[in-house]
Amino acid sequence: MAENILEIKHLVAGYETRLGSLLAVDDLSFSLAKGEFIGIAGESGCGKSTLAYAIMSLLEDNGMIFSGEINFKGKNLVGLKKADLKKMRWDQMSMVFQSAMNALNPVLKISDQLVDVMQAHQKGISVKKARQKAAEMLELVDIPVDRLDAYPHQLSGGMKQRVMIAMAMILNPDLIIMDEPTTALDVVVQRNIIKKIEELRIKFDFSVIFITHDLSLLVEISDRLAIMYAGKIIEFGQAQRIYEQPEHPYTKGLMNSFPPLLGDLEEFGGIPGKPPDLLKPPAGCRFYPRCEKRMDICHQKMPDLINTGQERQTACYLYQGGHK
């Protein structure tokens, strides 16, 4: 693999609430190579969206990064000056949001929303030139150019998400974070969008962090896969290998369940119970209360994420010999 474009080290992020700190992302580390496609899967509330927002430095109000490092192209984004962040963000790293319907300003034309991002980053660019670029981008995502001056409500859900992808790519970034970009769409449209993303990625060679609760979606397109549970990565490795041979009981559960096509469900079909309250996480393994294979050791100490094979890591005592 080529050099790492993103290295996350011991990231702790979450929300300050009335009842205490909620660590939605708890001591999480991984890295992403240039041009790589990493999929992150987990139930709703496992912290995957918080992770996306943290990488983009978009946690606001009571949301914050408590500790850790986010090294992007060799620069730590945690504690970076606002002005530098503003310049870098979207130019080198952009994001596609879960619901395109809500991510587009309903009272502005598509063209205006594509043009203003260019004007914000490329000082002195003419409107004409910016519009031209916007039209090119729309063409890339298969939207007819005559829709350039359409308002968001005049486009279908799939088209809106394509516009968001065009918007994310318009400054030619190195990394695009996709936070459940297809969740709100129906299956056929989902397929098309995924195909498009894959095609564009190969063409323009950007890295992708793709977040979803739909594991089946990830297997085909991800290079590597991270399974998140209650703020932690509990299994990490090559997508195909995880798919063929899941190790962690939670991953196995995810594999067996068929997540709903639309929206999140609080409980996955295959795994009874609910994720733990992150304000008061259980002492040992966070999956302990729901695990079929739990042992005594499991509720004493959280197992570390350790190598269980080639480029393969799992946080489960089942794979940390001697405790069986």
Binding site: M56, L58, K86, Q98, N102, L104, N105, D116, A120
Partner: peptide, 19 residues
């Protein structure tokens, strides 16, 4: 979300606030 997008896009405060 579109406000978050506007911030992420790096638009000026005035454009986010007004438009």
């Amino acid at each position: 979300d579109y406000i978050t997008v506007a911030k992420a896009k790096g638009l000026s405060i005035n454009r986010i606030k007004n438009t």
